[in-house]
Simulated scan of single mutants.
Amino acid sequence: MTPRIGTTLRGGDEVLLGFARALRAAGVPVTQDRTRAYLDAVAIVGLGDRAATSAAGRATLCSSPDHLERHDRVFEAWFGTDLPRTSTASPRERSAVTTLVVDDSGEGQGAGEADDPIRAAASATEVLRHRDVAGLSPADRQRLTALYATLPVRSPRRRTARHVAHHRGEVDASRTLRASLRRMGEPAEIRWRRRGTRPRRVVLLVDVSGSMSSYADALLRLAHRLGHGVSTGSTTNGVETFTLGTRLTHVTRALRARDPERALAAAGDAVPDWSGGTRLGETLRAFLDRWGQRGMARGAVVVIFSDGWERGDAALLAEQMARLHRIAHRVVWVNPHRGKPGYEPLQGGIVAVLPHVDDFLAGHSLATFADLVEVIARA
């Protein structure tokens, strides 16, 4: 479906306002003042000029060089290949609300012929967000790829032993005393402190076996987004990614490339057992023996993407999941079939792991990925 605007002067503003909201959801701090400046700038350059519209957004909505890439990704996802051929309203005309309709046929119906006018500029995008990624056409997959940039990724935090100054909390006796001494012993304002925080490591274990092959590409794109979504100083947040199949493969280095296509191509070259069998118990034991027990999984949020089909011993899988649960801060299991009607967790692998997971989530659409991102951020 392609969004099409009615032939009013204010039709373009609905699209631009929707784009500003999507950009804010992607993590760019878009304020009302910046949105107003953006609408005024596009009214001057004209909505029909794609390059000028993009430049107006970069100049008015982005407050940091780090926001420019997010702006470009959301711009491509929101507007697609063509901008709507409609005029934007002047600043005086923006008080009225216009209607956006969705053209299901793509045949150019009039705005008055639609049965359900809606107020969101991305109804087609919203439908795409809830569709199963395994059943998408190549064109829809390409559109969905651009929408990964809209996932509001935030790093989970853990408390540290060191204290930092704060406006409330416990009394910071040392700073309060020093402030009093600077005033020659006169009483000074009480200073407060609280324990600081730092990012908590996230470990992603992605099943790339045959039963998960239709989801593996989308899950690795999600892993790439998580790895590059939050910055802490000069490095990305602590996200480690492994693939599970007949063997364990560490693909964090392959996913470091900023461009998602290059990163996924590098990960594909690094994984030798793509679309192979499934030995979850053995690969989890290999992860814990070599990486997890030595510190990578300790205190971390561990997310396992798998449908639970296990060719090996389910008892071994349960044993390794119990080991993992003892050392990890939180264990999340994401099953692409979890959110589908009629699903029951009856597979031997799922039955074995459920007692040792903290969250059992769906993972078949961009909307469920957004829910997962929120669970990770709050862990």
Rank of each mutant, 00 (worst) to 15 (best):
S64M: 02
E126G: 08
R131Y: 00
A120D: 05
A77L: 08
T88H: 06
V74M: 05
E126L: 15
H67V: 00
P91M: 00
L83D: 09
D103Y: 05
P91I: 06
G135Q: 03
V127F: 03
D103Q: 01
G106P: 00
P65M: 07
D132H: 14
E113F: 04
E69M: 15
D66I: 08
A77F: 07
D104G: 10
V97G: 06
E69V: 15
R94L: 05
F79Q: 03
V127E: 07
W78K: 01
L128N: 14
T99E: 11
D116G: 11
A89H: 00
G135H: 04
E126M: 14
W78C: 03
G110F: 14
A114H: 12
T99C: 01
E76D: 08
L68R: 06
L100E: 13
G80Q: 05
E76A: 09
T98A: 15
S64F: 00
E93V: 07
A120G: 01
R94K: 10
V101P: 01
A124P: 01
A89Q: 01
S87Q: 15
A122C: 00
G112M: 14
R73F: 00
D82T: 12
R119N: 01
V133G: 03
A122D: 15
I118N: 04
G135T: 03
H67Q: 07
P117I: 02
V101Q: 00
R85Y: 12
R129D: 02
H130R: 13
T99P: 04
H67W: 13
R70S: 08
V133I: 05
L100N: 05
A111S: 12
A114Q: 10
W78S: 14
A121K: 03
E113Y: 06
E69I: 14
S105R: 02
L83E: 06
R85G: 07
G112I: 09
T98C: 09
P91S: 07
E69N: 14
F79C: 07
G135I: 09
E69H: 14
E126H: 09
A111G: 13
D103M: 07
D116Q: 09
R85A: 05
A122R: 10
V102L: 15
E76R: 02
E113N: 10
S95Y: 15
S87F: 05
D104K: 00
G108T: 11
L83V: 01
